[in-house]
Design a protein around this nucleic acid. Structure first.
Lengths: 203, 203
DNA sequence: TTTTTTTTTAAAACATTGTTTAAAACAAAA
DNA sequence: TTTTGTTTTAAACAATGTTTTAAAAAAAAA
């Protein structure tokens, strides 16, 4: 008979929440068991080890949140519109899951091996078409000649970093969570403008 | 007599290195003791607890690396030059200590209480003059009217984030460490241009 | 030198972690 | 119902973590 999807899912969900909130290393399996309201040993029964559970969760998170972004990057949209959509979708995604950036960065710092797992799924590794477009438009003289890698890192930085320092921004500006949302929403307009500005040919 | 600065320093230095490299939670006090070549109990003798040691190190790191930045922000340089210098100095600093960003972010994710400790020292909290300049230049019509907080976050993001995802950038582009340095050096020109571009009045 | 204080040591106490075991409870199939 | 296989449980285990203790060694003060 199929394993109780119910219990397995309960563990997965509880662990996801805790890992995002407190980080993997500060979350004990006992805590996960308590939150999932299951017996301690069931974690090992279903996932063999904590590290394994973490790996499953990490892959799932990255994958879930990358598919749409990859689709945009691979699409035939013209460069400007592609940038607008990528920024918009990415920011919406992170707004819904603001802990994601910190989590991924913590993992990046914690276990470099995890990089491999990201390759297959992260939108960072799906920039071929984007790169090609930037080079082509540059050649045509439609935009300033630009290193596509730099442009992509700019974009990523402007999108993601504010979420990584969310707490600092909130604290510094005496923001409520709502204020932060407004702040971020503003960036959905601001970032594409900035990037496209930087591509515009000087008169 | 004063406590043996020597031993205390040895512990401090060994722990700093390990915390930066592997993160606080994955560094054991036994490891610190081994690396510092001291008896295990001395860590407690000098710093009372691992958490306390960490706190000392964190404050020191943030402080050391913020003083010059704060000085620039508080200076009377005109806005454009201030941006150029801030970016340049900040990038140089992170280049010398590339693990700093990941470390601070991991901490931000790990212990929100630490935010308090940053207030007194982080350059993020010394933007008063900068803010004032942006508003003033905007009023005078010398630059586009801009939310200073947004501009500052842009600047910070463009500077810091690439270091946080250094491993991804290296891996994705098949960079050597030297390549990464070149990539970053390029950004020292690129970032100020981008920011100043975004402030320029449209024709 | 003797006394006092500071620093270092080895040992062990103590807590918590992730994992395993072996039996019990349960559900499905025969 | 009996059998079979799956899921759950409580308890134990082994490893590793941090902190404390109490005595030894070293250094400074008297």
């Amino acid at each position: 008979m199929a394993r109780s999807r119910n219990t397995e899912q309960k563990i997965f969900d509880a662990a996801t929440e805790l890992f995002l909130e407190k980080g993997v290393d500060r979350t004990s399996v006992r805590e996960i068991a308590a939150k999932a309201d299951i017996n301690l040993a069931l974690m090992n029964y279903y996932f063999r080890s904590k590290e394994n559970l973490f790996s499953a969760i990490f892959s799932s998170l990255v994958k879930t949140n990358s598919e749409e972004l990859i689709r945009i990057l691979d699409s035939n949209l013209e460069l400007e519109e592609k940038i607008r959509q990528y920024v918009s979708v990415y920011i919406d995604m992170l707004s819904e899951n603001p802990l994601l950036v910190s989590f991924v960065m913590a993992i990046l710092h914690r276990s470099r091996e995890r990089i491999t797992e990201m390759k297959a799924v992260s939108s960072l590794y799906a920039t071929e078409k984007f790169t090609q477009q930037v080079l082509e438009e540059g050649k045509k003289g439609n935009i300033r000649r630009t290193d596509p890698s730099q442009l992509f890192v700019d974009m990523l930085s402007l999108i993601a970093f504010p979420f990584a320092i969310k707490m600092l921004i909130i604290d510094k500006n005496n923001f409520t969570d709502k204020d932060f949302q407004v702040f971020i929403k503003e960036r959905k307009k601001r970032i594409p403008e900035m990037l496209i500005d930087s591509l515009r040919l000087k008169p």
